[in-house]
Design a binder for these strands. Structure first.
Lengths: 142, 142
DNA sequence: AAAATAGATTAGAACCCTTCTAATCTATTG
DNA sequence: CAATAGATTAGAAGGGTTCTAATCTATTTT
């Protein structure tokens, strides 16, 4: 009972990275554990860097950025832009949208089934819809 | 027939600024003309700065930023964030959404009546919905 | 109308987040 | 186990935005 291949593949993270064409290096594995093994999260590069340091991983900020982008490109993460000058990476890559708390600058998932659009415009000629982002901006109510 | 108060208030821009509590200074008037008198536009601070220079207005980049934010706060403009590291200001403040052309980095209005949501989540406790942004991200079709 | 003053503008420095560089290290291949 | 393609790194550079503190100007007061 050392490995639980089906349950929660510990060493399976390696295969997961390999599966998307990324070498399972020490740093990528560390970040994959932090990001991909837990629940849904929204992290900034800076916050993840700090978290990794505190968890005892030695990893440079440049690698954080590289990895975040590689994971995003590989479909393991999703980038969310809601504020000028800061990017969030969302570990939830399923169909869903976001609340944005203007006062705290934080994001919160809205399950896909809680937003429904009954009318969408056709994409202009020569283009096709890549993704539809819905951001519900919140302010404190008094 | 020098002034057309109702038609297209030339000097009326002054009143418009006063109306939102902003002193009608030379620079603000110049930007108000560039932005508010024409059709719908999506400008970045840098682009507006360049445009103002080319139009013969002397205005610093700092003032462009100040003014853009003041206009936004006053409800004359709307800020749209779609890409990390760059803000657009939309002269269309009516209810509408946006296409974002990933390849060119440009924005295009979607009239409000071409997007309809039949389901929106309730705002979390202590908050209320400030605005809902829908961004339809486009890619080139082959 | 002139003086006073509160607010606006400015150039340039500072800032923050992100990307780049080119040197070093490491997972994989032969 | 050597070779090599790819990954990591610290620190510099970059781009957009904000700040600073000095100067200027629209408005108010006298």
């Amino acid at each position: 009972m050392t490995n639980q291949p089906a349950e929660r593949p510990f060493a399976g993270t390696i295969d997961r990275l390999r599966g998307v064409g990324l070498r399972p290096t020490r740093q990528r594995l560390a970040l994959a554990r932090l990001l991909l093994d837990g629940g849904d999260r929204h992290v900034s590069a800076e916050a993840l860097h700090q978290e990794a340091q505190e968890a005892g991983f030695k990893i440079s900020l440049a690698t954080i950025y590289n990895t975040l982008h590689q994971f995003t490109q590989a479909g393991l993460l999703r980038e969310v832009v809601v504020e000028p000058g800061r990017s969030y990476f969302d570990t939830n890559v399923s169909d869903h949208h976001h609340f944005f708390h203007a006062d705290t600058g934080s994001l919160q998932d809205i399950p896909g089934d809680q937003v429904a659009m009954n009318l969408l415009p056709a994409a202009p000629d020569g283009t096709e819809i890549d993704r539809v982002d819905v951001i519900v901006r919140l302010k404190k109510s008094d």
